[in-house]
Design a binder for these strands. Structure first.
Lengths: 103, 103
DNA sequence: TAATTATGTAACCGTGAAGTTACGAATATA
DNA sequence: TATATTCGTAACTTCACGGTTACATAATTA
């Protein structure tokens, strides 16, 4: 596998986001997941490898099948990043609030 | 400018994330922002165009300078997307809770 | 045992994102 | 007015991402 992408690069791909979305509904193995996409099964397999490496999913091997389920790990960094900007605006709002009160 | 990238693709680039981060500290025009990066000023200019098109920043023209400030718009889609997965895990937790209570 | 199914991976290719340099235009300053 | 500053854009190059096909392998099933 190529060098691992960071969490932001991983979710930049619409197909991978679609896969994550599908996995909120039910569990899929690689082939059944691939049935939902135009692309070939090996292409889906690659995406799954990337999602797993970045901690967005975990894989359970059962016989020859590989079942995918969502994992929170990958999302943590994203949420943390967004929170930083939420803080920025909250601070801005409270500054505004202070100004208005002392007017 | 080329076709606009979606919010996820926009933040996939580490340099653009760095720019957004810098803009939580203070305001920059293109040149002063470019001083913080190895890349050329035109490269930074392109990134700024992309960030603006996707609603992550707004630009105020003052004379020959262009001042950049953060805009919430671009973040909304991201937060909404993340929320969907938060809901997924919360639901999973409450299901587990229900099971435990009726045991 | 033979055939089928589920999968990973190697080798390859096309394309677009991200960078560069070179320019011109507009604004500010000496 | 001449010079310096700020900026956008066109033209070009590079390279890695996302796709393909063609295999091999392991696990089922007939």
């Amino acid at each position: 596998m190529r060098q691992t992408l960071d969490a932001f690069q991983v979710i930049a791909d619409p197909s991978r986001r679609q896969m994550l979305h599908l996995l909120t509904k039910e569990t899929y193995n690689i082939s059944s997941l691939a049935d939902n996409f135009e692309m070939s099964r090996p292409a889906v397999s690659k995406h799954i490898g990337i999602l797993e490496a970045a901690g967005f999913i975990t894989i359970k091997d059962v016989g020859r099948e590989r079942f995918c389920t969502l994992s929170q790990d990958g999302f943590i960094g994203l949420r943390k990043w967004l929170t930083h900007f939420d803080d920025f605006w909250n601070k801005k709002l409270s500054n505004l609030d202070t100004i208005l009160k002392h007017k």
